[in-house]
């Protein structure tokens, strides 16, 4: 475990590090990782359009799909909204150096890989986070498969939409704090994107964040449980690479129906 500090949603607490060249970045009070705080104050309300898009519907006509399809999405929202248990555990880590595609962090942790090198070279600190909507929705979705496969799949899509919203909300909070401090943030980088393999990325990220405190564990194949979870890192600094979006670095970018039809909810 590294000695990164728990990050939090209060003013300046997402930010850590030695400070920018033109601006003294606020320092996070360092706490042991095992004292990580889990943030549960997320108001997630995925709507019917988001569920339809997560199911692969054409975003341009998501709300104009067949009445039966819209009805299915409405059923999923009604049945699943109350099962969302959003939680984020995050650590804010100061960057101490970057060498040979390896971003060294205060306390001994590190992030490494071509993607890290490409996007975090200007970062003074990073926020590493694991987000989940908990196990209740996916348990419900699996339970429905034998009785009503369509509702099962729609509930799963609600979960995907909710995780997307949670990641977007986290990025927004971190970004807002960074802007208030005169800093910038990178796009969120997740293990599995091109240039940061799942296995190595998850090992590095889970060494920084006590994901178990949010109920998230890794399987032997580096899959997160609950399945509706996301792991990511955001770079923060006075001048960081702000270009791109995660889909640009996905191996499925050319063929993904979700991407082709996606309307960004992330702003």
């Amino acid at each position: 475990m590294s000695a990164c500090g728990s990050a939090g949603p209060r003013a300046s607490t997402w930010l850590a590090g030695p400070g920018g060249s033109h601006h003294e970045a606020p320092r996070l009070e360092t706490k042991p990782v095992d004292a990580a705080v889990v943030f549960r104050d997320w108001d997630l309300r995925p709507n019917v359009d988001m569920v339809l898009r997560a199911l692969g519907a054409d975003s341009g006509r998501a709300g104009k799909g067949s009445p039966a399809a819209v009805g299915l999405a409405e059923e999923a929202v009604t049945a699943g909204q109350g099962l969302l248990q959003p939680a984020v555990v995050a650590a804010s880590c100061a960057v101490t150096g970057l060498r040979h595609q390896r971003l060294q962090l205060e306390g001994g942790g590190y992030l490494a890989g071509p993607l890290i090198n490409e996007h975090l070279y200007g970062a003074r600190s990073v926020v590493a986070a694991v987000c989940t909507i908990g196990p209740a929705l996916e348990t419900e979705a699996s339970g429905w498969f034998a009785r009503d496969p369509a509702l099962s799949v729609a509930l799963d899509a609600l979960g995907s939409a909710a995780v997307d919203m949670l990641v977007a909300a986290l990025c927004q909070r971190v970004g807002d704090e960074a802007v208030a401090e005169g800093l910038q943030t990178t796009m969120p980088l997740s293990p599995g994107l091109t240039g940061w393999p799942v296995a190595t990325g998850q090992r590095q990220l889970f060494a920084l964040v006590d994901a178990s405190s949010a109920g998230v564990t890794l399987t032997g194949s580096y899959m997160m449980l609950p399945r509706k979870s996301a792991s990511l890192v955001i770079g923060i600094g006075p001048q960081v690479d702000r270009g791109g979006e995660p889909c640009d670095y996905c191996s499925m970018a050319a063929t993904c129906r979700y991407r082709q039809r996606r309307v960004s909810d992330h702003g």
Binding site: L52, G56, S66, A68, A69, G71, P149, A150, V153
Partner: peptide, 15 residues
């Protein structure tokens, strides 16, 4: 012409 949601509700009608 149609997407997964429409496919799902068709399968549901069939079932």
């Amino acid at each position: 012409e149609i997407f997964v949601p429409e496919m799902l509700v068709s399968a549901r009608a069939m079932n």
